[in-house]
Simulated assay, not measured.
Amino acid sequence: MSGAEALTLALPGMLRRQRKAQLWVAVIFATLVTLLYQATGGWQEFSAFILFLPPLALLLARTVSGWLRREQRRQALPILAGAFGLNYAPDNKDFFPGLPAGLLPAGNRTQADHVLEGEFAGAPFRFAAVRVSHMAPSGDASHSPGLLFRGFVLELLSLGLPPKLLIADHLRTRPGQFVGPVLSTEGLTLRAEMNSDGMDYGLWAAPEADLPGARDLLENVTRLAETEGLQLYSLRAEGSAWYLTLRHAPEVFRFSGILAGKARLLADVRGASDEIALAFRLAAGLLRAEQGLAAPALPK
């Protein structure tokens, strides 16, 4: 199924559901106004409540719009993911157990949304929008950093067997085990470092690893994040897979809700398609970076 066919399938249903939601808002609001008028006993008494009607209408519209946006995502994203040959799940509690320690900050609350699974160039991958937070027990606010990470996580099976390594900002790393935003470099040694997007990134690897292309890998991965307008959080190679994490804007797969016209909804669907395609672009960039690790570029 092509992207155009996916748009054709997704958009009519979204428009029908939107019109129904608009009708519900109108009917509910009219019913509330009628009941209020009858309860007050006449126009003079009812007029005292007129100033409260616009906020009531706004609250009702926002409530229904929030529900509608969730329904639009639920309806459109499986169709769009299918157009790319991907499996889609709105959330997946089993996403985190497969991730290596030290990839994300350690928190006690995790959430993986919009999970995509598929293949790129024969390499299986998983991709999700992830949140990690840490909340202290009730009554102890001194060690409660709150939201630690919000971004994308890509797990990509390597075409080879990469050495164990970590790329992250120096300020977020140190040896040891922690709860919070710090990533552990325990057992790894610093092999390369560079500044990118105002961050001082380092590449740490196992002491015995032969990494002639360490600097190239670091440059390629940071460039990949910059190209997509995202901030690199970490890259880890563990076992036979690569794990890439990138910070993103507060909301992904955004739909405009109850007041959007057809053109706006079409733009929302295209935006969601581009965010799904991001998984492939990141996978392609990561595989290219892996090749550079094995065969570093010659100095100019």
Rank of each mutant, 00 (worst) to 15 (best):
E5V: 08
A6T: 10
T8M: 07
A10N: 04
M14G: 08
L15C: 02
L23W: 07
L32M: 13
L32I: 10
Y37N: 11
G42M: 09
Q44A: 15
F46M: 14
F49Y: 10
P54N: 05
P54V: 05
P55S: 11
L56E: 12
L59K: 09
R62D: 11
S65Y: 00
L80P: 02
G82N: 06
F84G: 07
Y88E: 07
P90A: 15
P90W: 14
K93P: 11
K93G: 13
D94S: 14
L99K: 06
L103F: 00
A106M: 07
R109A: 15
F120N: 12
P124R: 07
F125G: 00
D140R: 07
S142P: 01
G146P: 00
F152A: 14
L161E: 08
P162W: 06
P163F: 10
I167R: 00
Q177A: 02
S184E: 02
E186F: 03
E193C: 05
P207N: 12
P207K: 08
P212R: 14
G213H: 03
D216H: 13
L218E: 07
N220Y: 10
T227Y: 07
E228Q: 12
Y233H: 14
S234D: 10
R236T: 08
F253A: 02
S256E: 08
S256F: 06
G257D: 05
L259K: 01
A260I: 02
A260L: 02
A263L: 08
L265K: 01
D268S: 06
R270W: 06
G271V: 01
D274T: 14
D274R: 13
D274V: 13
R288Q: 08
Q291D: 15
L298W: 06
